[in-house]
């Protein structure tokens, strides 16, 4: 394996980690507030479709971004209505959202474009192009660092940088602001928040909407930066891998980045080496694809420290009677 191959795998790691990271942070906000969200996948998918479709029609990636995020927010509102306002089962609501998104995207795509459930390929202004970071020219001559900066760090779409900046921002919001304190509290003991005179419902909606926003960005990245257009089921289980990463990260922002980078790395390896020949055995790509889930099972089984979810997670808040 030469340096170019390693750089290419690393570059792929950043590219493939980005949607996972955005979705993982999305899940982090929601679940830290006590609303489990299995519908990350569906929200990504619907954002991917609407961003690609609108970008194709309007010829602007930015308009596509607005449309994609708006679509994800609509699903977030539905999730909020079902699981906060009407106190429904959060897992079932999430599953419903996934089915809704999977069906709706293909249906609308076929109706609008007649391309077999796809959108037209995006090019030019309709797609988020890679940015060339400053210093790329300057460092180009430096051995190792130059190619590393130029290939791995520079050249990604704006949303990728945004995703990684969202990590310290999330940490700061969670641990350094009033909103973060209340958000964490409402996921642990909503009764404490309620008796402190703060609205549990408003806090949880806020968290679910942030989740929708970040899922939306993840989906937009998928369709308008990572790929050039929407194809059926293009989220490809990333929402679930993001959930796995969230558990792997024990619901903490920096660890979430670590976990999604690890999973992104695995995906990058699997993409580059469909059959990874280790000399003794040949590892099929499917095995590497399955690794995030296997690792999550390992961590859930308590082998690598204990993953304790927010205590009030998964249950709607009802004032106790009497």
């Amino acid at each position: 394996m030469d340096v170019a191959a390693i750089l290419s795998i690393l570059e792929g790691t950043i590219r493939l980690s980005t949607p996972l990271l955005l979705a993982c942070l999305a899940g982090l906000f929601s679940e830290r507030a006590g609303v489990f969200d299995i519908g990350l996948e569906g929200k990504m998918l619907i954002a991917a479709f609407f961003s690609a479709a609108v970008a194709a029609l309007a010829g602007s990636a930015w308009v596509g971004l607005a449309a994609g995020v708006a679509a994800a927010l609509v699903l977030a509102v539905i999730h909020g209505l079902a699981s906060i306002t009407f106190r429904g089962n959060q897992l079932i609501a999430g599953v419903a959202i996934n089915f809704l998104a999977a069906g709706l995207t293909v249906l609308v795509a076929e109706n609008w474009f007649r391309l077999g459930g796809r959108t037209p390929s995006l090019s030019g202004e309709a797609r988020f192009q890679g940015l060339t970071l400053p210093l790329t020219e300057t460092l180009a001559g430096v051995p190792l660092l130059g190619p590393f900066w130029g290939t791995v760090i520079s050249g990604h779409a704006l949303l990728a940088y945004l995703a990684f900046l969202a990590v310290p921002a999330t940490w700061w919001i969670l641990y350094r602001t009033r909103f973060g304190l209340r958000l964490r509290a409402v996921g642990e003991n909503p009764a404490a928040v309620d008796t402190a005179g703060i609205s549990v419902v408003a806090l949880r909606y806020a968290a679910v909407m942030i989740c929708g926003l970040l899922c939306g960005l993840a989906g937009v990245y998928l369709a308008t930066a990572l790929s050039a257009g929407f194809v059926k089921d293009m989220s490809g289980g990333r929402g679930f891998i993001a959930l796995a990463a969230l558990i792997f990260a024990k619901w903490r922002p920096w660890s979430a980045m670590g976990a999604t980078l690890l999973f992104g790395f695995l995906q990058s390896v699997a993409t580059r080496f469909p059959r990874l020949d280790l000399g003794i055995v040949v590892v099929p790509a499917q095995f590497i694809d399955a690794l995030p889930y296997l690792l999550t099972v390992v961590i859930l089984a308590g082998f690598v420290g204990k993953a304790i979810p927010p205590r009030a997670g998964g249950t709607a808040y009802v004032k106790e009677h009497g």
């Binding site: 009033r178 304190l181 509290a185 642990e188 003991n189 008796t195 402190a196 005179g197």
Partner: peptide
């Protein structure tokens, strides 16, 4: 008790009675 069990005493006291947007 209506306490957040894995918060510190101080965080529990402050919850809902914060002075501004920043915690410190």
């Amino acid at each position: 008790f209506k306490l957040v069990e894995n918060f510190t005493v101080l965080e529990n006291i402050v919850l809902g009675a914060e002075e501004g947007h920043l915690l410190a």
